[in-house]
Design a protein around this nucleic acid. Structure first.
Length: 261
DNA sequence: ATTGTGGCCTGCCCGC
DNA sequence: TGCGGGCAGGCCACAA
């Protein structure tokens, strides 16, 4: 599903949509428009403008628009794909159908001279925003510093994994990336987030940044080393121990009870 | 403020 | 072959 690695690929793809005047907006699904906006508002805001910069904060894609226009915010939920001029941002999306039905196009911007940018989302868990409140998201984990990570975890009694996925504390970690990071770092996902030693914090920082970078390079959040074993009967790829399956932060969690402590 | 829980969205897959 | 139930998880509303 779209976690930071997928949305980063979408951001790169969205560069192809910059500096092209918007000629039309297609917003057939009112549910998909968030923050009290409707199709008319989006049309009025975007027609005639161009997108100037493609940014990303965590799992939120942000497109600045010209002439002091609004920021278009795109959220992809679990099954959302970005498609620009018919090209998709990622090849495959876990938990999402490989079909592509036009009825799953929830939002589109058409450009003068042809071509378009579309959000395709079978499950409608994503959404479109104008001027989203970027301050509600914590620092992006692709570039998070050791100090910022320490501060985001400090004094928390919440499970470590839940805190990593708290988008207000740090932005971009989803369920698969959380499991991969903690597996690489050798940390039990149930540990109180504020209880890590300085050495463990350093290890977590190294593997958080490393996992994010690796999964971007490999092309998606499903491409982790733990991923193939993340199923019934799975064994730890590192030490062969039977993996445990529990629920942490309301999410299915796979972890190795032997080396994650 | 912090943490935990349930519900929403919908397609897929398993077992009967 | 059809059908029902369980499952996936990002996010939000709400409760304690």
């Amino acid at each position: 599903m779209p976690e930071l690695p997928e949305v980063e690929a979408y951001r790169v793809l969205a560069v192809a949509a910059l500096h092209r005047p918007v000629a039309g907006v297609d917003a057939p699904d009112a549910w998909f428009l968030k923050g009290g906006i409707d199709a008319g508002v989006v049309v009025a805001a975007l027609i005639g403008r161009s997108f100037t910069v493609a940014r990303r904060r965590g799992k939120l894609l942000l497109l600045d628009s010209s002439d002091d226009g609004p920021v278009l915010g795109l959220r992809f939920g679990m099954t959302g794909r970005l498609v620009v001029d018919g090209r998709a941002g990622v090849d495959r999306l876990l938990y999402s159908s490989d079909q592509s039905l036009s009825s799953w196009d929830r939002f589109a911007v058409q450009f003068a001279g042809g071509g378009d940018l579309r959000v395709h989302d079978s499950r409608r868990l994503g959404g479109v925003f104008l001027d989203p409140d970027e301050g509600r998201l914590g620092v992006d984990v692709l570039t998070i510093t050791p100090a910022a990570l320490r501060s985001a975890l400090a004094r928390s009694t919440a499970p470590l994994k839940a805190r990593l996925m708290d988008q207000a504390r740090m932005a971009g970690v989803g369920n698969l990336l959380a499991d991969e990071t903690l597996w690489r770092a050798g940390l039990d996902p149930h540990r109180p987030a504020g209880g890590l030693t300085p050495a463990e914090l350093r290890r977590l920082h190294k593997h958080l940044r490393g996992s994010v970078a690796d999964l971007i390079e490999r092309g998606g959040s499903h491409s982790g080393d733990l991923m193939p074993a993340r199923a019934a009967g799975g064994v730890c790829p590192r030490d062969g121990a039977a993996l445990s399956r529990t629920t942490v932060g309301g999410r299915t969690t796979w972890w190795c009870p032997k080396h994650q402590r």
